[in-house]
Simulated assay, not measured.
Amino acid sequence: MLPDRPHSATSPRARLRRINGRVGLGLVAALSFLAGMTDAVGFLATGDFVSFMSGNTTRLAVAVSVGDVSALARLALAIVCFVVGNALGVILARSLRRRAAPLLLLISASLALAALPGMWTPLAMALAIIAMGMLNAVVEQVNGLPIGLTYVTGALSRFGRGLGRWLMGERRSGWRVQLVPWAGMLLGAVLGAWLQARLGIAALVGCAGLTLVLACVTLFIPRAWQRGYMPR
């Protein structure tokens, strides 16, 4: 349940806000599913994460400690690509007047390029990682609640802290919805692993297709709501 405003819970404005929140969370679930799917494909195909930069950071530190120059360079590049993708996502979101569909189309194109037959694997991974960085600009918050799409450590942490407060008698709302991106990423990773086992890194074409579908879905979301979800 999303946090409520002071106005009446039965007012038209309150009902509209609840619908806005539910639509936003549905989009979050779908985008997290996409992130999990892409991460699983990339990880199983190359051994590196596409969206889980905490894991790549730990592996980078290990590479430094053992002197593995090849892994160090590869993982450092992955982290840089993710940061660049996030920055590019914000720039594009604002340039596109905070419309989700054009941004998702660019993400779909990046994933489709990564899935091309004969694509050099490091370049394919770079394109997929940049795409996942850009994905975070599609939904940054829902009704003031911060959301992470391509990583779930923060979501689990916020859920756990909310659970602790609830067990101590505090009845704040909003913490339960942090399981939405976690569940989305988990289920997406299951599908991504299944596809990768059959198609290899070419399974990224499925990720590109799903992104294209989501781009079409966002055309039915009111512009005012999209502007609220995306970076200001």
Rank of each mutant, 00 (worst) to 15 (best):
G200R: 01
L105Q: 04
A137C: 06
G89H: 07
F220L: 15
V152G: 03
R223K: 11
L111N: 00
L103R: 04
A193Y: 09
G174W: 07
G184F: 03
L106E: 06
A189R: 02
N86T: 12
G36H: 03
L123C: 10
R17A: 15
L145S: 10
L105G: 04
P3E: 06
W225I: 06
R98V: 02
P12K: 13
T121K: 13
T211A: 14
Q178A: 10
R161L: 14
A224V: 14
Y229F: 14
P122V: 01
A40W: 04
R18T: 13
I201K: 02
V84C: 12
L116T: 11
A87P: 00
T58N: 14
S95Y: 06
G200E: 03
F52T: 06
G162C: 10
G89P: 07
R171Y: 11
G154F: 09
T46W: 10
L75N: 10
G188V: 01
W225R: 11
V142R: 06
S8Y: 03
L75I: 15
L214W: 02
A73F: 11
V80R: 09
V190F: 07
L127F: 12
M132A: 08
L77N: 09
G21L: 11
C207Q: 04
V139A: 06
G188M: 01
A112D: 04
A114C: 10
I130K: 00
R171P: 02
L210P: 00
V213T: 08
T211N: 09
G174Y: 10
A137T: 04
L210R: 01
M230R: 01
G133R: 03
P146F: 00
C81P: 10
E170S: 12
S65Y: 04
V66P: 06
L106C: 11
L44S: 13
A87C: 11
R165C: 06
A126G: 15
A109N: 09
T58P: 06
A14Q: 09
T57E: 10
P102R: 04
C216P: 00
L27I: 12
I201E: 02
V83K: 01
G42F: 07
V23S: 02
R13E: 15
L214H: 06
T38N: 10
T211W: 01
A155N: 15
T57L: 15
L195G: 01
V69T: 14
S11E: 09
D48A: 15
A78G: 13
A45F: 05
C81T: 09
T211L: 05
N86Y: 06
G160Q: 06
V217L: 09
L72T: 14
L34N: 00
L2S: 13
I91C: 06
G154Q: 11
V205K: 02
V23Q: 04
L88N: 07
A203Y: 07
R227I: 03
S11C: 08
G47R: 14
G148E: 05
L186G: 05
R223V: 13
N136C: 08
W120V: 04
F220T: 15
A45R: 01
G133K: 04
S157T: 15
P146S: 07
L212E: 04
V69N: 07
A45N: 05
